Amino acid sequence: MTDQHELDARIQSYYSGTFDEGARLATRSAQGPLEHQRVQALIRERVPAGSSILDDGGGTGAHGVALQEHGYDVTLIDPVAQHVATAEASGVSAQIGDARNLPFADGSFGATLMLGPLYHLSAEADRRRAITEAIRVTSSGGWIFAGAISRYVALGQIFLTRDPANGDVDEWVELLRDGTPSSRLRFPAGHFHTAESLERELLDAGAVDVHVHGVEGPAGVFLEQLPVDVDPAVADAARRLADEASDTAGVRDMSAHLLAIGRIP
């Protein structure tokens, strides 16, 4: 298991200089807009407009800005100062903070999004703390939306970029069995989930009525290889597949990102 202090330092370095998180959901590939649209739809289907939302680990504010445009009152928190500055410049109330220790009173929000923290935390205890904190600051009857990266897609992407003959079989087994990321990843991943393990973590922390969705659907990995201005017919077909297969067991794990949605008792 990766030391979390080392991982936290890698997160700061990666998002402050190596990777443009703001472009990921907008211009990096055709996958980003699909992910953004699907997550937005799943949120707005459940959370009434006008509700207060905490965007916990909200990055540069891609979701926060869109939700504000639809009438939500958004507060964003993120550990990367550069992300916070970008979100504030976009008009979102934002501050630096850690998902494991949220600086808000109990029941402060009608819904909490945590679309990034869980896959950057390697220890189950840290993930449990982050989920518990998200539940704590969300009012009774409110919603929690917890994102994760599929360990099956993570395994598949190894073979898109690497000759399997040169691979480490023990590392592949650890990934599939325990969600342990490869030590050679540039991306500062702490843990990869299955839909079932993500559901279990939310239930164990106290959420109820938890359902897990695949975000991008079976065509999402293909769209990651295509430019953002892909043929609209291709983008529409991918969206249709994602919508139809959203919570189908097994198929949902073909999405790069998983989204667990639960209620606060």
Rank of each mutant, 00 (worst) to 15 (best):
M1A: 05
T2Y: 02
D3I: 08
H5W: 08
E6P: 03
E6D: 15
E6R: 14
D8L: 12
S13L: 13
Y15V: 05
F19L: 09
E21G: 13
G22K: 06
L25K: 08
R28Y: 05
A30P: 13
G32C: 11
H36K: 14
R44D: 07
E45D: 15
E45P: 03
R46W: 07
V47P: 09
A49S: 13
S52M: 10
S52I: 08
G57T: 08
G61A: 11
G61R: 04
A62G: 13
G64V: 08
A66H: 11
L67T: 14
H70I: 05
G71E: 07
G71C: 03
D73F: 07
D73I: 13
D78R: 06
P79D: 00
P79N: 02
A81R: 07
A81I: 09
Q82L: 14
H83I: 04
V84Q: 05
T86E: 14
A87Y: 07
E88D: 13
A89C: 06
A89K: 13
G91A: 07
V92F: 05
I96K: 09
N101I: 00
N101H: 06
L102E: 00
P103I: 02
F104H: 13
T112S: 12
L113K: 08
L113R: 09
M114R: 03
L118Y: 01
L118W: 01
Y119N: 05
Y119S: 02
L121I: 03
S122L: 00
E124F: 00
D126L: 12
R128Q: 07
I131M: 03
E133A: 04
R136W: 01
S139D: 15
S140L: 06
G142C: 08
A148P: 08
S150G: 07
S150V: 09
S150F: 06
R151A: 10
Y152R: 12
Y152G: 07
Q157N: 14
I158K: 12
F159D: 10
T161Y: 14
R162L: 10
R162H: 15
D168M: 04
V169E: 01
V169D: 01
V169T: 03
V169N: 00
W172Y: 12
V173C: 01
E174A: 13
R177E: 13
R177V: 14
D178M: 04
G179W: 04
S182C: 10
S183K: 10
R184H: 14
L185H: 12
P188S: 11
P188Y: 06
G190L: 05
H191E: 05
H193G: 11
H193Y: 15
E196P: 01
E196S: 15
S197F: 02
E199K: 15
E201N: 05
L203T: 14
D204W: 00
D204S: 09
D204P: 04
D209E: 15
D209I: 06
H211S: 15
H213P: 11
G214A: 12
A219T: 11
Q225D: 13
L226P: 12
P227I: 14
D229Y: 11
A233Q: 10
A237E: 10
A237Y: 02
A237C: 03
E244W: 03
S246W: 05
A249T: 14
G250L: 01
G250I: 02
G250W: 02
V251H: 00
V251R: 00
R252L: 15
R252M: 12
D253G: 08
S255A: 13
H257K: 10
L258H: 02
L258K: 00
L259A: 08
G262E: 01
P265Y: 00
